[in-house]
Computed example of a mutant assay.
Amino acid sequence: MQKETLTALGLFLAKKSVNKADVARKTGLSPFRLSQLSINPKTYLRVEELYLIALAIEVSPSDLLEAVCKDVILPNSKS
């Protein structure tokens, strides 16, 4: 059995000690969807979901976006 690793969103939520059941209730997202967003790197986070999650956990959507996309770079970037 493969060990589950957290996605960038999962790490962010874990660092903030966020209760995903509470987030699901506040956002209308299913607990399964939040779980998939937190542990499955092949699950894509939609911008509306990111915004709802940020509102639910009372963080700036831009802070959450930066945390989730910290490893994204331009394909031909030299940075």
Rank of each mutant, 00 (worst) to 15 (best):
L65V: 11
A24G: 11
D63L: 10
L34T: 03
D22W: 10
V59C: 02
V18F: 02
I57N: 05
L13E: 03
V68E: 00
K26Y: 03
V18C: 09
K20Q: 11
A24C: 12
P31T: 14
K26F: 01
L11Q: 05
I57M: 02
R25P: 00
P41S: 11
K16C: 01
L52I: 00
N76V: 03
S30D: 04
G28H: 04
Y44Q: 07
A21Q: 08
E49P: 01
F32N: 15
L50Q: 08
E4G: 07
K26P: 00
V72E: 06
I73N: 13
S30W: 12
L6S: 07
S30R: 11
S77F: 14
A67M: 06
K15H: 11
K78I: 13
T27D: 14
P61N: 01
V68A: 06
E58Q: 15
V47E: 03
T7V: 09
L13N: 04
S62W: 05
L45M: 12
L65T: 12
F12V: 00
L74R: 10
R46Q: 15
A21V: 05
Q36W: 10
I73Y: 15
P61E: 05
L74Q: 12
Y51S: 01
L50V: 04
Q2I: 10
S60L: 12
L65C: 04
K16M: 06
Y44E: 09
A14I: 02
D63Q: 08
A21C: 01
S35E: 05
P41V: 04
F12C: 01
A8M: 05
L9K: 12
T5A: 12
Q36F: 08
